[in-house]
């Protein structure tokens, strides 16, 4: 069981959390102008990173806040966790 640091509650057991998958996927505006393929990319396509992966976590049995994490998918080490919006360093990259 992992230990995950909630930005508000501190280090907690994984059983208090649920993982939301890849972070920084922005919902496209004016979706009706997108091709089926572009929309499909947004809905279905996710990275399968080996190494540092940005992902969303939810402190479900805690303060019920969503936050972002950088986690190494090989070692399971969390590099950092941070509130959504607080870690943006030019890393919002649309619907990829």
């Amino acid at each position: 069981m992992l230990q995950i640091t909630c930005p508000w509650c501190g280090a907690r057991a994984e059983s208090e959390f649920s993982c939301g998958g890849e972070a920084d996927i922005v919902r496209p505006l004016e979706s009706e102008t997108l091709s089926d393929e572009a929309w499909g990319d947004y809905v279905f396509m996710r990275k399968n990173t080996k190494g540092v992966h940005k992902e969303q976590w939810f402190h479900a049995s805690g303060c019920r806040r969503w936050f972002n994490a950088e986690r190494d998918t090989v070692t399971y080490q969390f590099i950092r966790t941070y509130p959504i919006g607080a870690g943006a360093s030019g890393d919002s990259h649309g619907a990829d």
Partner: peptide, 13 residues
Amino acid sequence: LNWMERWLQTEWP
């Protein structure tokens, strides 16, 4: 509820 919170917190804060 989780679905709504997720959209509120991550997409439309």
